[in-house]
Amino acid sequence: MEKLEKSLREIAEKLLSEKKVDLIIGYERGTRPLRTTPCFVNKTEDVQKLIWDSSCDNNLAKYVVDRKEKVGVVAKGCDARLIAVCIAENQVPKENVIIIGVPCLGVVDRKKVESKLEEKEILEATIEGEKIKVKGEEFELLLAKNDFLCDSCLTCKHRNPPIQDVLVGEEVPELTEVNEFTEVENLEAMAAEERWNHFNGELSKCIRCYACRSVCPLCYCKTCFVDQSIPTWFGKTNDLSDTMIYHIVRALHVAGRCVDCGACSRVCPVNINLRELMKKIEKIVKERYNFKAGLSLEEAPPLGDFKSEDPQEFIK
């Protein structure tokens, strides 16, 4: 890790000093255990702030859209793919972004660690190789990092950024054998009513804080459909019907674009597993149109495109 951090800082410093970018967007240590926070560096002397470890969970692609200056972005596989989607959708000029790719073995899901510790508060945590060392009042534990990774990381098939300008460190082996749709398949196997009750239960927790929308690099619409007032399509209350529709439509809007970075699930303060919806959308697009988002800078999103031979078994 330290080696990676060192080389990341060197790259950042070089990009800044050679004026290739005006700003580096990366991670710095946060104020809480297992917490990093987005960091914006525009002076070479500040590159020492930059860090890299498995707690770097924020999706920095969010900060690339709508920027005037040239930026270098520290990007994991998922982040890099999202930047690629934004470039392909003409939201970010390619020449304004330098993707500093970091191979990633998965990020730690704090919620998982916290639930393991139940009511005990973590006061200090460090990630040392394959272990997470957590300390609190009167306890100290060594946890195996792989047991606490985010769900989306467990099935990630692009740990190495498929698109990048500079790579930090060396490529890591990809997971080729995993089935990324197990969760979705389990849900599909349920009866419709069971699924309905399941999603009712999950989404009834929603408090409409829109963190899932705010954190998503693909939600760059100037006015979101739920904020439209003339006409007012769907309500903004926490009524169950409105809430479900919000999440359904948001899932539709990221169809063929979502790369399963897992940010929406991670930020959800009421622990809604939004990946259940996002993964389904990904599966539909993959099965119907054989498309995976974020692997090319040119390919148009599949929902803005068509082929004459597209399947239409559902049409009467």
């Binding site: 359904i248 899932a251 597209d310």
Partner: peptide, 17 residues
């Protein structure tokens, strides 16, 4: 274009129940 949109919509609505 609509065909793709409807396919995704129909599948997703079915999925949520």
């Amino acid at each position: 274009v609509a065909r793709r949109r409807f396919a995704v919509l129909k599948d997703l609505l079915e999925y949520v129940g």
